[in-house]
Amino acid sequence: MSKPSIRFFTLGAAAALSLALAGCVVAPAPYGSYGYYGEPVSVAPPPPQVEYMPAAPAPGWLWIGGFWSWRANRHVWVGGHWEAPRPGYRWVPHQWQRQGQGWRERPGYWNRR
């Protein structure tokens, strides 16, 4: 191949790859998607960690406290964060419920009033 052909091929391949990747979006999972949905785990969650809330980003925002989640066969702390209020909804916190010999994780969620 001549140098112009190699350059044209390389630019064409780069353009095609760019177009293919343009439709890919990597975004964090929404807050409500946290949670373990498998069998109940046998290890009780540790006590909640102490969290210090930073200043709210805007008046009226709601602090969503941190919680223990089950990931990679162990409890992992997920820190709290601020969320904008949702008119007509109330926040139901994350919780662990006893189920038989184990514990089942119930993620927090916004519930219509």
Rank of each mutant, 00 (worst) to 15 (best):
L21Q: 14
W61R: 01
V92R: 11
Y109Q: 13
A29D: 13
E105M: 01
P93S: 10
P93G: 06
V26S: 09
W91C: 03
A58Y: 13
R71G: 03
P59R: 05
M1K: 06
Q49D: 11
L17Q: 05
P48L: 11
G100Q: 05
A58Q: 12
W63D: 01
G35V: 04
P107H: 07
A16L: 15
R98C: 00
S18G: 15
A20Y: 06
R74Q: 15
Q101V: 10
G23T: 14
N111V: 11
Q101S: 15
A58M: 09
Q95N: 08
L17M: 12
V92W: 08
Y109L: 07
R112K: 15
R90A: 10
W68N: 01
Y37V: 07
A15T: 13
A15Q: 06
F8W: 12
A20S: 13
S18Y: 06
E39H: 12
G102W: 03
T10Q: 10
R71F: 12
I6R: 09
A27H: 12
Y31M: 10
V78C: 10
L19R: 06
E51V: 04
E105D: 08
A56N: 09
W68I: 02
G108C: 03
Q101H: 10
A13P: 00
N111F: 09
W110C: 01
M1P: 03
W103R: 07
R104N: 00
G100L: 03
Y52K: 13
V43K: 09
S18W: 12
P87W: 01
W96M: 08
A22V: 04
A20M: 11
P46C: 13
G100S: 06
H94I: 00
G65Y: 07
A16H: 06
E39S: 14
S2D: 08
G102M: 05
G66V: 01
T10N: 10
Q101R: 14
Y36R: 00
N111D: 07
A44T: 02
P87L: 11
A20G: 15
A84Q: 15
G88H: 09
H94F: 10
G100Y: 03
Y89I: 02
M53P: 09
M53N: 12
V92C: 07
W61L: 00
